[in-house]
Design a binder for these strands. Structure first.
Lengths: 247, 247
DNA sequence: ATTGACAACATACTCGGTAGTATGTTCCCA
DNA sequence: TGGGAACATACTACCGAGTATGTTGTCAAT
């Protein structure tokens, strides 16, 4: 089941990239088409970020698009479904960011470092989606009415757990390989991610050079998180960040 | 202005302790009196924690107390005011927890460690209030109607900033005294607190021995946070935790 | 070219929930 | 005994989710 959830998330990720590519190649003001769904998701992410799920209204999202409720409800069954899709997309972005580095042939510490850097940069580049993830799904445990919503809910929770497990097992491997000072693996994993995720609450992008700023911020955070595990930043980090700033 | 805010927060803290003491000495089922205000705050904190500010209704809070709206609005002007008071109380709890250790005559690293431990334990003991703090006040920036509310808002923000500054300056002092590996002081402070605060999102108390569990959890978290700064837990931690578990 | 059918919205409406208020009611205390 | 504190009850007004229906463009078949 977790694997199925991951596959669906991965599909959502690739369809996201596809639609983004389509939008670039199409006419600039193409209003119709399947990418309107993507615009809704982005606008919804901003609204949910600003006001929270309950306080954000469907009309707010529509207004941000210069549209009306009818459009939203043409693409999504309910406000809850819309929120879940935003959440899925956020998770898909994160999975797409770290997966390439979770299976590299290098050692575990390098993998962990690159995963952390990629995670943090994805966080900084998609703040809106990430703050929706930070809001969590706990609130919806109470009042998910339909069966499909409950199903979607456990899928999101599975996906989030699977994501954290990827970090935890990499930390575990690195602990064995490099002899880190990890006492409680669960607490260490939570703390590691907490450091990286903390940016969404206080980072506001500067104007001059966003890419360089994100790179240095990610470096500082991952450096702190690694020191918390009892190790230091490996050389592989510099290579990755240079590639990011140029690519 | 910041100092004034701190004083008012401190007053709220001592009045909290006073009312708690009063409740213990009074008859067990004393319904009337000034402590009903405290019960409202505790119930409101639980509701705001579970559903978030917007989704939690005044009737929910009243129902949790076996009362009705009229009682709530007899003590608080509006839902926003109630939230602000919960927030103030949460900050007051935190200030009361760490202040004794922020002015001890020991070295900066000891002070930082004890502040971190006290902060984390206060977090674990008052989850409801702390999750309200985590929700933040950003949402209310938009729609604070009355002038008094806007004033209260900046006071809360000042208070929060003042709290973080206490940690930041202690980290700065410890960096100079003990030569920590802190590059960016601001990022280090944010990360330090992020590790300690992360518990509110995933900690759920066990039944057997809550005090011991909190002590070990706080130890692990502060240990991680200190390693992130490039140092290790000093001996003063053990003394503090033993005193906590017995006192 | 015409028609019909469907997608992609906009408009107008219903309806339940909730913040806030206005008005009792009870009890205590001066 | 009367006045106010500490509530409960009853009511209003509004906002927002969801729905029902109208409108427009497009495309495909005939």
């Amino acid at each position: 089941m977790v694997q199925a959830a991951q596959n669906r998330i991965a599909n959502a990720a690739s369809s996201l990239e596809a639609s983004l590519r389509v939008r670039k190649n199409d006419e600039p003001s193409q209003k119709s088409g399947a990418n309107s769904r993507q615009e809704i998701l982005r606008a919804a992410a901003r609204c949910f970020m600003q006001h929270g799920f309950a306080a954000a209204s469907i009309d707010d999202v529509a207004r941000e698009l210069g549209a009306t409720k009818g459009m939203i409800y043409h693409h999504f069954r309910s406000k809850t479904d819309l929120f879940f899709e935003v959440y899925r997309q956020g998770m898909a972005i994160n999975f797409a960011a770290i997966r390439p580095h979770s299976e590299g042939e290098s050692n575990a510490l390098d993998r962990l470092t690159l995963m952390g850097l990629a995670h943090t940069i994805a966080l900084l580049e998609e703040q809106a989606f990430q703050r929706v993830l930070a809001q969590g799904v706990a609130m919806h445990q109470q009042g998910s009415t339909t069966a499909a919503q409950r199903e979607a809910l456990v899928e999101l929770i599975d996906s989030r757990n699977s994501y954290e497990t990827m970090f935890r097992s990499t930390i575990e491997a690195a602990t064995k390989e490099a002899g880190l000072s990890v006492n409680d693996l669960s607490i260490a994993s939570k703390s590691f991610l907490a450091v990286l995720n903390s940016t969404v609450f206080w980072y506001s992008p500067r104007q001059d050079n966003p890419k360089a700023e994100r790179a240095t911020l990610a470096f500082e955070l991952v450096s702190y998180a690694l020191k918390g595990l009892g190790t230091t930043m490996p050389e592989a980090a510099n290579e990755f960040l240079e590639q990011y700033e140029n690519g």
